[in-house]
């Protein structure tokens, strides 16, 4: 299998720990389920060090077209 994370279309994905999740939800004043979703089986999560479980939050660091880097969060589902 190819290492998907090396592909230029795939931004960095990292799994957040509990405290970081709290921080994110507080910053945006939202519930966890308000976040955009990502499937547990998503190829981009396949090669991460830890396996992503449903309920985890993933930080996606995109190389944005409009600013330097754009950080978005996705909730792992299913």
């Amino acid at each position: 299998m190819v290492d998907v994370s090396q592909h230029e279309l795939v931004p960095d994905h990292t799994i957040l720990d509990g405290d970081e999740i709290e921080g994110v939800l507080e910053e945006y004043n939202i519930k966890k389920t308000d976040l955009p979703k990502i499937k547990r089986t998503d190829p981009a999560l396949r090669d991460l060090e830890a396996d992503a479980e449903a309920g985890d939050v993933v930080r996606v660091t995109r190389d944005s077209r409009t600013t330097d880097r754009a950080v978005v969060y996705r909730l792992v589902v299913e």
Binding site: H7, L9, P43, A44
Partner: peptide, 11 residues
């Protein structure tokens, strides 16, 4: 399917 949602969005 091959690279994930984020790549699909970029693409």
């Amino acid at each position: 399917r091959q690279l994930g949602v984020e790549a699909a969005r970029e693409s």
